[in-house]
Each structure stands twice: as structure tokens, then as C-alpha cells.
């Protein structure tokens, strides 16, 4: 899986006009597209405050002074760059590829991560990649320089999918990397996090960090299209169940719908973006739609 495979020109062309914007103010050292927690003399006007000695006279609103006889200084929102952590699940469940999908769930997630990394990198943000299963497989340390995209993709290509997912351990590393403010993008199917996703998102949001949850599922997982009797083996636990899909399909679909709806609700309740990515859907369309919606919300 080379980086050229991850970054499809068609997909990049679809998302070229969008920026990955953080909905919360981020702390950054470089000037970028994101609002900074620091008020000062950036490009966007925020409020007036009374003039205090030492303020730069060029920020005094003289027209207001002429009308009211009192000097006010204009305060601007500083714009800065942000740290973005892309957290990708590489547990065994992500290896599934259905008959209608163009690739496995992990590959789809990797492509999503690559596109977002490219987008962030293009607008000058620092990007860190965290891939995990039962442990962290690859990650960017807090003190490390943000890796260049080709290096990041090379790391991604080395990843072997398997074992169970331990989301919490990877979150710790991602939070450390992002710091107090920044954007964490979570890419997983969240199969064993029916209860725990809300807590996880709340923890991330607690530090005023922006968070985006992307649930990657195969179309087969949503509608269970199989006709004949099957012996289903759980990819992570190894448990087996033999059943007639035709008989249990209705019940399965209802439970799966309830599961995704709950994940969505948990995210929205914590002011976190939620996106359901089905692997037979065009990646470019998915990303473009999401980024357009995100820009519109800001």
C-alpha cells in the first residue's frame, strides 16, 4: 500500500477546495487558518476594549473617539495553525471486505486519513498519525516534529491488521500530541464501543479539543445480504455462530441501526462531528460532503 495508492488524484481533486478547519480555537505557533485562543492583532475583528496606555495607537478607533469622546482599542482574533491527530483503528474487524466494497475497512480508513493529512499539511497544520490495535502500532510523539507525508504513509503501509482494539491507549497518545487544543480524528468501526464512545469523546472534548468521529463500516455489516446458511466467526474474539441470515436479517438490521444511531447521538451530544463511512461509497464524495458541512457550521 504505497502513498500514491492512498492518495487518489480523483479524491484529492474533489476535496481540493476545502480546508480542514477546527471548530475550537487552537493554540499554535504559526499563523494559519484557525482561530487562536490569543486575542490580539490578527486579521479578524472581535470586540472593543478601553484604551490602556501602552496599546498601539493604530488600533484605536478614532471615529468612535470622535463620536463618544472616549478612546477604544479594537481587539482582533489571532489566526494560528493547529495540531491534528489522525487515530486509525487497525484491529482485526477492520480487515473485512465485503463483496460490494472496493477495499477493506482499514484500507478505506487509511485513505481517509491520508486525504485528511494531505489537507492539513497543505494548510500548514501539524499532523500526527496514530495507528493502533491492542497497542499503539505507530504514532507521533509530542516532542517530535510533524513527519512528512511520505514518511507517514510509509508507516501506514507497514501496518498489519489484527487483534482486538484498545482505543483508550491510543487516545492517550493522541491527546498528548494535540495538547490542550487541537483536532483529533477518530477512524474506527467502534464495534466494541457501544457504551464507551460517549465517554471517550467527552474526555477528548473536555480539554477543549475538537473531535471528529468517523465510523467505518462495510455495506455487508449494515444489511447482512447473505442468502445461504453461514457459520459466522467473530474476527476479533473468534466466537462462532451458525445462522440463517435470511431469518435473522431483520433483527440484525434493527440492532445495527440502533447501534449507529446511538454512536451518532453520543457524538452530537458532545458537540462532535460524526460521519458514517460505508466502504462501497465514493471516498471523494464522502469527504467533500463532510468538509462542506463542517465549513458551513463554522
Amino acid at each position: 500500500m504505497s502513498w500514491t495508492e492512498l492518495l487518489s488524484p480523483e479524491v484529492l481533486a474533489r476535496i481540493a477546495d476545502y480546508n480542514l478547519l477546527s471548530r475550537v480555537a487552537v493554540e499554535g505557533f504559526l499563523s494559519g487558518l484557525h482561530r487562536s485562543v490569543a486575542r490580539g492583532y490578527g486579521g479578524e475583528f472581535v470586540q472593543y476594549r478601553g484604551y490602556v496606555p501602552g496599546d498601539d495607537l493604530k488600533h484605536v478607533d478614532w471615529k468612535l473617539y470622535a463620536r463618544q469622546g472616549k478612546a477604544y482599542t479594537k481587539v482582533y482574533q489571532e489566526e494560528t495553525n493547529m495540531r491534528c491527530a489522525l487515530v486509525l483503528d487497525a484491529s482485526a474487524s477492520m480487515a473485512y471486505r465485503g463483496t460490494r466494497a472496493v477495499c477493506s475497512k482499514f484500507r478505506y480508513g487509511a485513505m481517509l486519513a491520508a486525504c485528511l493529512a494531505y489537507l492539513a499539511n497543505r494548510q500548514g497544520d501539524q499532523v500526527g498519525l496514530f495507528v493502533y490495535s491492542d497497542r499503539l502500532l505507530t504514532g507521533t510523539g509530542r516532542g517530535q516534529r510533524s513527519p512528512r507525508l511520505p514518511q507517514m504513509f510509509a508507516e501506514l503501509a507497514k501496518v498489519e491488521v489484527g487483534k482486538r482494539a484498545d482505543h483508550a491507549a491510543a487516545m492517550v497518545m493522541a491527546e498528548e500530541y494535540v495538547g490542550k487544543r487541537g483536532l483529533i480524528v477518530l477512524l474506527s468501526d467502534w464495534h466494541d464501543m457501544e457504551q464507551g464512545l460517549a465517554r471517550l469523546v467527552r474526555q477528548i472534548r473536555f480539554g477543549s479539543r475538537d473531535c471528529m468521529v468517523c465510523q467505518i463500516l462495510d455495506a455487508d455489516e449494515l444489511d447482512l445480504p447473505f442468502a445461504d446458511q453461514r457459520r459466522f466467526v467473530d474476527s476479533e474474539s473468534g466466537d462462532e455462530i451458525t445462522t440463517m441470515p435470511a431469518l435473522v436479517r431483520e433483527n440484525y438490521q434493527r440492532r445495527m441501526e440502533r447501534f449507529t444511531a446511538r454512536q451518532r447521538e453520543d457524538c452530537l451530544r458532545n458537540r462532535t462531528d460524526y460521519e458514517l463511512a460505508v466502504t462501497n461509497r465514493n471516498l471523494g464524495d464522502l469527504l467533500a460532503a463532510y468538509l462542506y458541512r463542517r465549513e458551513a457550521m463554522l
Binding site: 446458511q229 453461514r230 459466522f232 466467526v233 467473530d234 440463517m244 431469518l247
Partner: peptide, 23 residues
Amino acid sequence: LNRRRPQMLVFPSIRFLTRAQLP
């Protein structure tokens, strides 16, 4: 033979699957 040996499928999660008696 087809009735006795159902095809195996490694599935992401079987939490929502329930056992069904063959008719």
C-alpha cells in the same frame, strides 16, 4: 452436504447476530 456444512465467514462482529434454527 450443503445443509450439513454451512459456509464459514469471518465477520467483523457477531454481536448483533442471533442463532436461527434451520427450517
